[in-house]
Design a protein around this nucleic acid. Structure first.
Lengths: 205, 205
DNA sequence: TCCGTTTTCAAACCTGCGTTTGAAAACGTA
DNA sequence: TACGTTTTCAAACGCAGGTTTGAAAACGGA
């Protein structure tokens, strides 16, 4: 782990994650990555077999980071009343709002992919999205015990969408005309608001 | 309008709109645009003063196309019961789902911008988004007559988000595991579902 | 310490990009 | 028709991108 070559690999990954999140795949140059990582340019080809290979690795890490966070608490949810489980789910989905942290970067990387999914991303999703979608579907099922599969699916996406609108447009929410301050208490407030609305929506279905 | 030079301009705009929508700004090359438009490469610089100028024009057209559609019916809404006005609003927001038409392209161009807004886009938004946001805020205000400005704003964004999740992820919804067929009747069904849920949510607030 | 392997490095390579150029063609008016 | 303007065009320019190269350096087990 602390072997010199591992250090180089790690520096590249960290720098690439930041830059890919910020600018997207196309607009991020290898030269920019190596400059930030303070590493020789050829190192990327040596360690990751090119820019695309590096991106694949970054994508994997982002996906793992985002879903592990939510999946780790899947066990808790079962023991909670459904209302609380929903609130906790929403609060966690909003986590990337609070800070300029890792989760926020991971979210951004995913945002780029939702506009035009790369083949790498598609593969990753079909292979590994099931647990997270399953967890979400199970959550909404507690509110819609009699719904058919299609409605459950739509409800799950709807729920995820509740949060992602705010997460995705974080930067624009911070500015006028909305001017939301995104400190922890505001995010809590927002999470409660969303919980109430979503709850009511699911109850009406 | 049918002057030869106007034809060239128009062919470039049409081709650029398609390509920018499909691949985004960075990944769309001038050479690809002129190949599709069957026009000389220098024509873009001549007519639009460069790639960025062309993009600005495409963005303007997309924004106009999307909001005119909704603003044109703003008058109708006032005469409808609030429930129907809401349903109509949602149905119109979902329009890009139905077909691979112009509205769908315009939406895609906007999607690219939500990930990392260009300066051109920011300017356009602060200058011209007000009418559309106003219309949406007025709509939610009919359900939340006592809410403060911040809550109204959040509710408006929430409402827009209800729809944009589905619009944005159209391609992925069409495939497994959701496998939504996006014909008109499915979109109608979805619009009704969203209307009911949103209605309940707003009532609970 | 020695030696085969792994890892780093500076430089060059090639390709594709947006833009510029200057001349030819088309246009529109008098 | 004649002539100044507008519009098209093929070619080239300069630059930045990802990748390759071959040698130097660092590593690590014998």
């Amino acid at each position: 782990m602390t072997r010199p070559s591992e250090i180089t690999r790690d520096r590249i990954l960290k720098a690439a994650e930041r830059l890919f999140a910020e600018r997207g795949y196309d607009a991020t140059s290898i030269r920019a990555i190596v400059a930030r990582a303070r590493v020789n340019q050829a190192a990327i080809n040596y360690h990751f077999d090119g820019k695309e290979g590096l991106y694949r690795e970054v994508l994997r890490a982002a996906f793992r980071g985002l879903t592990e966070d939510q999946l780790a608490h899947a066990g808790d949810a079962a023991g909670l009343p459904r209302e609380q489980a929903l609130a906790a789910f929403i609060r966690r989905q909003l986590r990337p709002l609070s800070a300029r942290d890792e989760a926020s970067r991971h979210m951004r990387i995913f945002n780029w992919e939702t506009v035009r999914p790369t083949p790498v991303f598609r593969k990753l999703m079909t292979e590994e999205a099931a647990p997270f979608m399953g967890l979400t579907v199970e959550l909404v099922r507690r509110f819609l015990p009699d719904a058919d599969q299609r409605s459950l699916m739509v409800a799950a996406i709807w729920l995820i969408g509740q949060c992602s609108v705010f997460v995705r447009n974080r930067e624009q929410l911070a500015g006028p005309p909305v001017a939301l301050e995104l400190d922890d208490s505001t995010v809590d407030w927002l999470a409660q608001l969303l919980s109430r609305w979503t709850l009511a929506g699911l109850a009406a279905a």
